[in-house]
Write a protein that binds this DNA or RNA. Sequence first.
DNA 1: AATTCATGATACATATGATGTTACATGATA
DNA 2: TATCATGTAACATCATATGTATCATGAATT
Lengths: 141, 141
Amino acid sequence: MRTDNRLSRVLHALLHLQDLDGPATSEQIGMMLNTNAAVVRRTMGGLREAGFVASVKGHGGGWTLARPLDQITLLALYDALGEPSLFAVGRSEDAPGCQLEQAANAALSSALDAARARFRQELSEVTVADLRDRTAPGFSV
Amino acid sequence: MRTDNRLSRVLHALLHLQDLDGPATSEQIGMMLNTNAAVVRRTMGGLREAGFVASVKGHGGGWTLARPLDQITLLALYDALGEPSLFAVGRSEDAPGCQLEQAANAALSSALDAARARFRQELSEVTVADLRDRTAPGFSV
DNA sequence: AATTCATGATACATATGATGTTACATGATA
DNA sequence: TATCATGTAACATCATATGTATCATGAATT
């Protein structure tokens, strides 16, 4: 199944943004992410609304960081993207009235909820700045 | 995104199987699950190979439990299904050589791994028999 | 032995949703 | 006014879980 790569992509994009002087255009970011400018606009839109980046139209415009990376947790980004559905495994809805199916779904949901909580906890403990620190010493674009 | 419902479905099917006397045909199970007999065969095939159910061809044939439900954990079923890919969110592979993307992916993978471990732990602590116990008292098909 | 039932296996169709792509309106700078 | 860049919408592509159809094989019934 094709996975949703937006979180990874915006992380990648934000890390690049910090290494740049001025604003980066969607086109430029698209080159870094090996994708289309329209995809960049669509994906970064959520981050703008959440106040993590700013976008400016016209000449010299583009995307800039609106907040230091050490004040952006991965969880905040995930939520800014609309909290994309996390799982490729889910409940069945074959026989909603059947108690046996309900029991099966309840157990599955319970496990998925626990996994989701763990995922969110992990994301909440890391900032984007932490990721930059984890690249090789002296590394720059 | 369309989710993989196989685990929920086989749980549902096993619970029904226990409530039946003889073997159940794929056709019958398909009715319970509101799906096709071929889908049932395909899905249950993994459980047969893992020794949780047995299938018999021909007249009076069908599917039967090969082991008491209290000896089948949800995790064992999940693995018998081939450990279906759990997440709808994943790494990007836009610029494999880029250290920044690598750092982003490493953090994401770490969170996903933790979530997967939690999911598997939850599944390992519940047997199919436990689910049956959770239906309303006196409930039967 | 022939018939019927049921699984086993394969191939193909369908549906869904993330991503890719194109096009154009809007706003900002030169 | 021309150019650049975002904002937005519509549509195309692609991957894949599930649905569907078909036939070979094996087992019980007659």
